[in-house]
Design a protein around this nucleic acid. Structure first.
Lengths: 157, 157
DNA sequence: GACCTATTTGTTATTTTATAACATTTGATG
DNA sequence: CATCAAATGTTATAAAATAACAAATAGGTC
């Protein structure tokens, strides 16, 4: 991903965004939570909880137990700053945390990049489908696994 | 679910279907695999692997180790006789195993009934979205959590 | 600032879900 | 009936997540 955009800028803006959102919502983006969010934003690939634990241990020079990270993840999920990729047991930064929205992802099985696609047409279709079934939506996840543009090229060479 | 249809018929037809499909595909629906499929079809609720292990232990009077069940589940997933509900780490019988198709589910958070909805419009929408992103689909899952008709009524009383 | 309370984080142990590695059995085929 | 591949059994372990309780810390109130 660092090939096609300035990723440091990406991280910075995500963190700034997070600060603002939390402030507005009266939620506390503590150092730990911010650190976890920052680690998640290191890449555009979904990151496992235990990956984060290891990264935290590396950074902070003290071991971090699972509950610590899971609580930070729960907070970030709750506030909408990250999404969970269920098919991978992994977590990824939200591209548009300012508005609550469903979690739709295209996930490359080769390079593991996950790209969020907030598609209104798709949302409507799912809303309609739910209405037809008298079903009231609480949460929703779409996970599409496959090959991204880049990896199709690599693979076909 | 047993309230609105003859569930034994449901199970029977699923098992028959499975027999035929496996025969046609040259896949072996062994007694164990059939038994696991039958247990999964006991309800329209997603069933955990360890639930199945316990049920098998009850039925067969001998303990069944995890790998045994997971291998049966892998087989059934492979052939397309069941789906995995990633958000619940659980497995459920496929309603239309004769054709390969994506896994779209409405899952009630109250009664835990999961209903598969094979919607072409939705499929097309997702295909379009993928094409726009030059993404080649391998697998896909949609999981919508919420309240089914019945449970809305129960809840609002 | 001192005190109180709620929130957050630390810590230990355990649960839940899934797989690795190797042994044994079964079943189709020559 | 001998052989080989596929399926199942067995033991141990990995990976993901949570329960339960203790300690620390941030905000609000006097």
């Amino acid at each position: 991903m660092s090939t096609c955009h300035n990723h440091q800028h990406c991280i910075d803006s995500a963190l700034n965004n997070a600060e603002n959102l939390c402030q507005a919502a009266g939620a506390r983006l503590t150092p730990l939570r911010k650190q976890v969010l920052e680690l998640i934003w290191q890449s555009h690939k979904p990151m496992g909880a235990y990956d984060l634990i290891n990264m935290l241990a590396d950074v902070s020079e003290k071991t971090i137990a699972p509950p610590t990270v899971y609580r930070a993840l729960d907070f970030l999920l709750e506030v909408g700053l990250i999404h969970r990729i269920n098919s991978l047991n992994a977590y990824i930064g939200c591209m548009e945390p300012s508005t609550k929205h469903p979690s739709y992802f295209l996930i490359c099985t080769q390079c593991h990049t996950a790209s969020e696609c907030n598609d209104n047409g798709l949302s409507e279709q799912i809303n309609n489908l739910s209405q037809e079934n008298d079903f009231v939506i609480e949460k929703q996840w779409l996970e599409v696994l496959g090959l991204c543009r880049n990896c199709q090229i690599q693979t076909s060479v």
